[in-house]
């Protein structure tokens, strides 16, 4: 397998429309599965940690903690057995796989809000909803945001593998490259994936800093 800069460059210039299309597919699959996973994961995290359900929340932590060790390919393969190939099974398996870190971090963030803080809030006359939205969630933003960010990175990487069950995306170029023993094609798929992952990680890092309440930023810096 010969890979040269010139070879790679000519592949990019000759196939830019195709590359763009695959990048677009990749992004669509990622965004859809990621957004649904955020919605579902954060909801599960919240519901399972409501007062009186703390034990459910804690067992959920154990389960999702362990589930993070399941390899992505196993999830994709399982979904493939039940749903076959195409973008839909791909999105579903990516959703399942990304759900885990988001649920885990949301639940662990909410559970780590000190009982004293919650008791003070309750004793002062905040309703359960006000406690959730004004106290618990703002205090859990660091954990929740980092879960969502981790999930995004994992998702972008795993979307590549999901091409194996006909999802399309940049993984397709890599798989074709592997079959044709074409280093150039493999690189042509891998480089955009890497750039995508890094860019999104940086962007989400910025967002995370922006939404982090100032008081928590100060306490984080104090503890560091």
């Amino acid at each position: 397998m010969q890979i040269t800069i010139e070879g790679l460059w000519s592949y990019f210039t000759d196939n830019w429309a195709y590359l763009l299309e695959k990048t677009g597919e990749h992004l669509v699959i990622f965004v859809i599965s990621w957004i649904i996973a955020i919605a579902v994961g954060v909801t599960i995290g919240i519901v399972s940690t409501r007062p009186g359900k703390e034990r459910l929340g804690k067992s959920l932590l154990t389960i999702t903690g362990a589930a993070q060790a399941i390899p992505s390919i196993a999830v994709i393969a399982l979904v493939f057995i039940f749903m076959g190939i195409g973008p839909l099974p791909a999105i579903f398996s990516l959703f399942l796989y990304t759900l885990v870190p988001i649920t885990f971090n949301t639940a662990s963030g909410l559970l780590s809000v000190s009982p004293a803080v919650k008791e003070a809030a309750k004793g002062m006359g905040l309703t359960p909803m006000q406690i959730l939205f004004r106290i618990e969630i703002p205090n859990s933003i660091p954990a929740i945001a980092s879960g969502i960010r981790t999930a995004a990175i994992i998702n972008i990487g795993t979307t590549t593998i999901a091409s194996a069950i006909g999802a399309g995306g940049l993984g397709e170029i890599i798989f074709i490259g592997m079959r044709l023993m074409s280093g150039v094609r493999i690189m042509a798929g891998a480089i955009p994936v890497a750039i995508l992952a890094i860019t999104i990680d940086i962007a989400l890092g910025q967002v995370e800093r922006m939404i982090l309440p100032k008081g928590l930023e100060i306490s984080k810096n104090r503890n560091a």
Binding site: A116, V117, A120, K122, M124, G125, G215, L216
Partner: peptide, 29 residues
């Protein structure tokens, strides 16, 4: 809820809200 808003409450662990400034903490009720 009304009852609690009408009664002051302070505890040993204080339970200040870390994400709120001193002003916001006092202003909650």
């Amino acid at each position: 809820i009304q009852l609690r808003r009408g009664i002051g409450y302070a505890i040993q662990e204080i339970g200040l809200f870390d994400h709120m400034s001193v002003f916001e903490n006092i202003a909650v009720v």
